[in-house]
Structure formats: C-alpha cells, structure tokens
C-alpha cells in the first residue's frame, strides 16, 4: 500500500504534474512578455536531454557529496509528496506529528542544494550555497510561524488529517482573517523556497552564473531540475491542504481542486514576473521584519479565535 503511494502518487503523479506546472509557469511568463513561449513538452525534453548528457565531476570536488546531493533533495521531495497525497486521499493514513516531518523534509531540498554547492569546489557555487543558507535562515522563521495558524485553529492538532477534517466541517481556514494573513506569508515563503525571482538570490544568473548548480551537468542537473519542478507542485499542494481544505477528486470538485492549485500557481508566476531580484540583506530584512510581523499577528489572531 505504502509502496503504491510512494511510486504512483509520490513520484510519478507529482513529477508529471510538476512538469506540467513548470510548463504553465514558462508559458505564462512568455505571454506576460508578449512572447510565444516553449511547446508543451519542453520540460520533458529538457529533463530527458540532461539525463542523456555527459556527467562531469570536477577534480577538486568531494565526489561522494557531489553525486549524493541531488538524490538527497529529490528523495526528500518524493517523501513529502507521498505524505501529502496519502493524507489527502485517505484521512486514516495520518499519524501524529506528520506536519513536523513535512516541515523538516521541506528544508532538505535547500540543504541538498547547499551541499552540492559546497561540495563542487567552485567559488561561485560556494557563494551561492552560502546565500542559500542565509535565505533558508530568513524564511524558515515566518514559515513555521504561519504553519502554526492552522495547527492552532484545528484545536492544537499536529495531524494533517485533523486539519483536513476540521476544514471539511467548518470551512476553509483561508476564509478567516488569520488564515488569509498566514496564507500571504506562506506564499512569500514558498516563493523563496522555490528560488523564484524576487528571491532567486542563490542562483542569480547575472552575478554568480548559476550559483550552487554551476558545476552540475548531465544527470545531476536533471535530478535537481526535476526536484524543483516537483516542488513547484508539492509546496502549493501543502498550502492547499493547510488552508484551502485539500484537493478532492469526485465529480465536479475536480474542477474546484484544479482551480485552487492554478490560482496559487498564477500568483507565484505573477510575483516572479513583476519583481526584480533582491539583495540577500534586503531579503533577510524583508523576511525577519514585515513578514515575520504579519505571521506573528496571524498567530495572535488565531489564538483569539478570529
């Protein structure tokens, strides 16, 4: 049973949806800039091409780490999406504290990118990795504070199933004041977790080439890209479970579920297309200042019961 969830839902379905989502992202970006944009199967071609190319391992790198890092991040994303799908499809699959497990696992892709960057022995990759680390420190605080809101609202439960069933009875958290604030905070944190434009500081192509990924080629790069595409599906899915009552797939509710996901994806894409890149100190100040402030207000409102 769990194997089925791991392979069918966690890996195949999430990968397919993530690749489609990344095409939507690129196409919307192209349309915003009055371009035609890539064809539908473009992300597939990219991944297949990269898998077929030569993999170069730099001489000064620490080889085991360099090879392991993409696999580590990728397997963490597969685990997260497995947990989310298992909870979404059947509430009895939940166990106490699975939210904590997910929060931990969601930090691992960033850590994998850091590991890969530091292991590759390239100075630009090291700069990128250290920026990634600072960014992680920045957004993790408001991220966790905002996740406290649905936990408090559902009667201090650390089970995703309780959060889902509470929302099924009392309406989605995003309809309440604290829920809206927390959702705004989380969308910003997700933007940083995905490494998209206002917060693509670690990869900053115009200053440090591709940051931590600069030395990756072939299969390693393919796995990192697939990991990012899957995160593009998994993180909005996590937000939908926490605030919008999960995704249901019976009859007309399919449309509603797709609409929820597309809405979040479009918000992310629009933010990415209308903002310039921040500096790392500005990003830290932004996350520890206003964003954490909003998150604290949301938690206080949730405790009061709004």
């Amino acid at each position: 049973m769990y194997i089925v969830y791991l392979i069918v839902y966690g890996f195949i379905l999430t990968a397919v949806l993530g690749l489609v989502a990344s095409w939507v992202d690129r196409k919307v970006t192209a349309r915003v800039q009055y371009r035609k944009g890539p064809p539908f199967f473009q992300p597939w071609y990219d991944i297949i091409k990269l898998l077929g190319k030569e993999t170069i391992i730099p001489k000064q790198s620490s080889k085991a780490m360099f090879v392991m890092a993409p696999l580590l991040g990728f397997s963490a994303v597969v685990m997260v999406s497995t947990l989310l799908w298992a909870n979404n499809n059947n509430l009895f699959n939940s166990f106490l504290g699975d939210i904590i497990v997910i929060v931990y696992l969601l930090a691992i892709p960033s850590i994998a990118i850091m590991m890969g960057g530091f292991a590759s022995g390239n100075p630009l990759a090291r700069i990128g990795a250290s920026r990634e680390m600072k960014l992680l420190l920045g957004y993790e605080l408001p991220f966790i504070l905002a996740i406290l809101v649905p936990i408090i609202k559902s009667g201090f439960s650390l089970k995703l199933a309780d959060i889902l069933s509470f929302q099924a009875q009392n309406g989605a958290f995003a309809l309440q004041a604290s829920g809206i604030l927390a959702l705004v905070v989380l969308v910003l944190c997700v933007q940083a977790k995905l490494g998209l434009v206002p917060f693509d500081i670690p990869e900053a192509e115009t200053e440090i080439i591709a940051g931590p990924l600069v030395e990756y080629s072939g299969a390693g790069l393919a796995v990192f890209r697939l990991m990012k595409h899957m995160l593009l599906f998994t993180l909005p899915f996590f937000l939908i479970i926490l605030f919008l009552g999960g995704m249901k797939f019976e009859g007309i509710t399919i449309l509603y579920s797709v609409l929820k996901y597309v809405a979040i994806l479009v918000v992310i894409t629009v933010i990415r297309n209308t903002n310039p890149r921040l500096r790392i100190d500005q990003a830290m100040r932004f996350f520890w200042g206003p964003v954490t402030g909003i998150a604290v207000i949301a938690v206080v409102l949730a405790v009061i019961g709004w």
Binding site: R26, P38, P39, Q42, Y45, D46, L213, V214, S217
Partner: peptide
C-alpha cells in the same frame, strides 16, 4: 525559447 533554446548560465 520557441525552439526550446535557453541561454545557459554555465558551460556545464
């Protein structure tokens, strides 16, 4: 990008 071409940041 219509043809799938992107400007690669690194030669790798």
């Amino acid at each position: 990008e219509r043809f799938g071409m992107l400007l690669a940041p690194s030669i790798k």
